[in-house]
């Protein structure tokens, strides 16, 4: 694996509000992501996982500290860091295809219209929504919407893909097939991924590394684990791998260890 630091969070402090409404969300977060690495972020609700993701997306700026991508400081959002939002956030008045088209048009403003259309269609097919391309998000199931959101993110051909519980709202079966599709996409595009999840199995199955955050306020990085299960992974090989149970036990233990998670 390429060991170059591609994404760097250094000495991050995030404070919301002031006075009695002041909330110190993140206190001294340091985290590096290598190029092409798939990193999962776990931790209890309200621990600042989404805040960390928003910092990298540029949707929020740190109170102190610096976020860098490829050596350059993040100062705002951009196509190089596409986001799959927790609530899919498709534009409800546009069809699936048009939602993807928007990102394609932003990425390739100079390409002829026909080529941009073809690219959008290719992405819609990639997430198997070609039969629903002209439908509005409101006419789709939760899984389909999430897939459209992923197609839009990939349309940006991002250096970094950010996902906030992308499969949280899905049933187990859809979730499984979406995870497989995501792995395939990730391996073919070699993007760096930061994903928030509550699902320990999902984290182990998809990630190269799992990062646990302590509980807020003043959340920090509590612990990190490398996932040394060889790829390509399937659910069966994962279950049989000796590392799987050890890792899962440790993750669950750490998540439940309130003493360990609370800020010192």
């Amino acid at each position: 694996m390429n060991e170059e630091k591609f994404v760097e969070f250094s000495r991050i402090q995030v404070v919301f509000g002031s006075g009695s409404g002041r909330y110190h969300a993140l206190d001294g977060v340091d985290l590096d992501l290598n190029k092409g690495e798939f990193v999962s972020l776990i931790g209890h609700s309200g621990c600042g996982k989404s805040t960390l993701l928003n910092l990298l997306a540029g949707l929020q700026l740190p109170t102190e500290g610096l976020v860098r991508v490829a050596g350059k400081a993040v100062t705002g959002p951009g196509l190089d860091r596409a986001v799959v939002f927790q609530s899919h956030s498709l534009l409800p008045w546009l069809s699936v295809e048009a939602n993807v088209q928007v990102a394609v048009d932003s990425k390739h403003p100079d390409l002829p219209k026909k080529q941009r259309r073809e690219e959008a269609l290719r992405l819609v097919e990639m997430v198997h929504l070609q039969d629903h391309a002209t439908k509005k998000p409101g006419e789709l199931s939760g899984g389909m919407r999430q897939r459209a959101g992923i197609a839009r993110a990939f349309a940006a051909k991002p250096e970094v893909l950010l996902m906030d519980e992308p499969f949280g709202a899905l049933d187990a079966l859809t979730r499984g097939s979406m995870q497989d599709e995501l792995t395939e996409l990730w391996q073919s595009q070699q993007t760096t991924v930061l994903m928030i999840t509550h699902d320990v199995d999902e984290a182990i199955f998809l990630s190269d590394r799992i990062v646990l955050m302590s509980n807020g306020p003043r959340a920090r990085i509590a612990k990190q684990w490398s996932v040394n299960i060889p790829r390509p992974r399937t659910r069966e090989t994962m279950l049989e791998h000796p590392e799987y149970l050890l890792l899962k036990r440790e993750l669950i233990h750490s998540l439940n260890d309130s003493h360990f998670l609370s800020a010192a």
């Binding site: 959002p77 860091r81 939002f85 956030s89 534009l91 990102a103 932003s106």
Partner: peptide
């Protein structure tokens, strides 16, 4: 959400 989408996807 819509504002975030517009910013991230440079609309």
């Amino acid at each position: 959400d819509y504002e975030n989408v517009a910013q991230v996807y440079e609309i």
